[in-house]
Amino acid sequence: ETKSLTLVLHRDSGSLGFNIIGGRPSVDNHDGSSSEGIFVSKIVDSGPAAKEGGLQIHDRIIEVNGRDLSRATHDQAVEAFKTAKEPIVVQVLRR
């Protein structure tokens, strides 16, 4: 079962304390579909994302501050987090 969660993150020394993997390839599949998503791959101990109620590894990131990342490329997702103003509201899907 997958549930949708909304989390609020604040940077600590400029970092949110997690890494992402995935992202849509720069070239779409011929039918326009994509199974890619942006997923949390690593969480830094005691970083902002590790706090209670924070992110978990394998969370799929859907949205950052209202910006849809469900079909974003990896670079677009990285840029969305880099430029996001605080508080950073992150919507994820968690299995």
Rank of each mutant, 00 (worst) to 15 (best):
E1Q: 05
T2N: 15
T2K: 15
T2C: 07
T2G: 08
T2D: 14
T2L: 10
T2W: 09
K3T: 11
K3E: 05
K3F: 15
K3Q: 06
S4I: 13
S4C: 13
S4E: 09
S4Q: 10
S4A: 04
S4M: 13
S4V: 05
L5V: 14
L5P: 01
L5H: 07
L7Y: 07
L7A: 09
L7W: 03
L7M: 12
V8G: 03
V8N: 06
V8Q: 13
V8P: 04
L9A: 02
L9V: 07
H10M: 12
H10P: 07
R11E: 03
R11W: 02
R11P: 05
R11K: 11
R11Y: 04
R11T: 05
D12E: 14
D12H: 08
D12G: 06
S13H: 12
S13Q: 14
S13Y: 09
S13N: 15
S13D: 13
G14M: 07
G14V: 05
G14K: 05
G14L: 06
S15A: 09
S15D: 14
S15K: 12
S15G: 10
S15C: 08
S15F: 07
G17L: 02
G17W: 03
G17P: 06
G17T: 03
F18A: 00
F18D: 03
F18N: 00
F18C: 02
F18H: 00
N19W: 05
N19M: 06
N19D: 14
N19P: 00
N19G: 07
N19R: 09
N19Y: 12
N19I: 04
N19T: 13
I20G: 02
I20K: 00
I20D: 01
I20V: 06
I21F: 06
I21M: 12
G22T: 11
G22N: 12
G22I: 07
G22M: 09
G22L: 07
G22R: 11
G22S: 13
G22K: 11
G23K: 15
G23H: 08
G23L: 06
R24L: 11
R24T: 12
R24G: 11
R24S: 13
P25H: 09
P25I: 07
P25G: 13
P25A: 11
P25D: 14
P25M: 11
P25K: 14
P25T: 09
S26A: 12
S26Q: 10
S26H: 14
S26T: 13
S26C: 08
S26Y: 11
S26I: 10
S26V: 10
V27L: 12
V27H: 14
V27A: 12
D28R: 11
D28A: 09
N29I: 07
H30R: 11
H30W: 11
D31Q: 10
G32C: 08
G32V: 12
S33H: 12
S33A: 14
S34T: 14
S34H: 13
S35F: 08
S35Y: 14
S35G: 14
S35W: 12
S35I: 12
S35K: 11
E36H: 10
E36V: 08
E36T: 12
E36N: 11
E36P: 09
E36Y: 08
E36W: 06
G37H: 04
G37M: 03
G37C: 03
I38L: 05
I38F: 03
I38R: 00
F39A: 03
F39S: 04
F39W: 06
V40G: 00
S41Y: 04
S41E: 07
S41M: 02
S41H: 07
S41I: 03
K42G: 10
K42F: 08
K42V: 04
K42D: 15
K42H: 15
K42P: 03
I43P: 02
I43S: 02
V44I: 11
V44P: 06
V44A: 13
V44F: 15
D45W: 05
D45H: 08
D45L: 07
D45C: 07
D45Y: 06
S46Y: 10
S46N: 13
S46F: 09
S46H: 15
G47F: 06
G47D: 05
G47P: 05
A49D: 09
A49Y: 06
A49P: 08
A49K: 10
A50C: 13
A50W: 07
A50V: 06
A50P: 08
A50K: 08
K51T: 10
E52D: 12
E52M: 11
G53T: 08
G54P: 04
G54Q: 09
G54V: 07
G54S: 11
L55V: 06
I57S: 04
I57D: 05
I57A: 07
H58E: 06
H58S: 09
H58A: 13
D59Y: 00
D59R: 00
D59I: 00
D59G: 00
D59L: 00
D59T: 00
D59S: 00
D59M: 02
R60D: 00
R60K: 10
I61Q: 00
I61K: 00
I61N: 00
I61F: 04
I61W: 02
I62P: 00
E63I: 04
E63G: 11
E63N: 14
V64A: 08
N65R: 00
N65E: 02
N65V: 01
N65P: 01
N65H: 01
G66Y: 02
G66T: 02
G66N: 05
G66W: 01
G66K: 04
G66L: 01
R67P: 02
R67I: 14
R67G: 04
R67V: 14
R67E: 10
R67T: 14
R67D: 05
R67M: 15
D68N: 10
D68G: 03
L69F: 05
L69Y: 02
S70V: 07
S70K: 08
S70T: 12
S70A: 07
R71C: 14
A72K: 02
A72N: 02
A72F: 04
A72M: 05
A72Y: 05
T73Q: 04
T73F: 02
T73S: 09
T73P: 03
T73W: 02
H74N: 04
H74R: 14
H74P: 15
D75W: 07
D75A: 14
D75R: 12
V78F: 04
V78G: 03
A84I: 03
A84V: 07
A84W: 02
A84L: 03
K85E: 09
K85N: 12
K85H: 10
K85P: 09
K85S: 09
K85C: 11
E86L: 03
E86A: 06
E86T: 06
E86P: 05
E86Q: 05
P87F: 00
P87Y: 01
P87L: 01
P87V: 02
I88A: 03
I88G: 00
I88C: 05
I88L: 12
I88T: 03
V89L: 07
V89T: 13
Q91V: 06
Q91P: 01
Q91W: 02
Q91L: 03
Q91R: 14
Q91T: 15
V92W: 02
L93I: 15
L93P: 01
L93V: 14
R94M: 00
R94N: 02
R94H: 00
R95E: 11
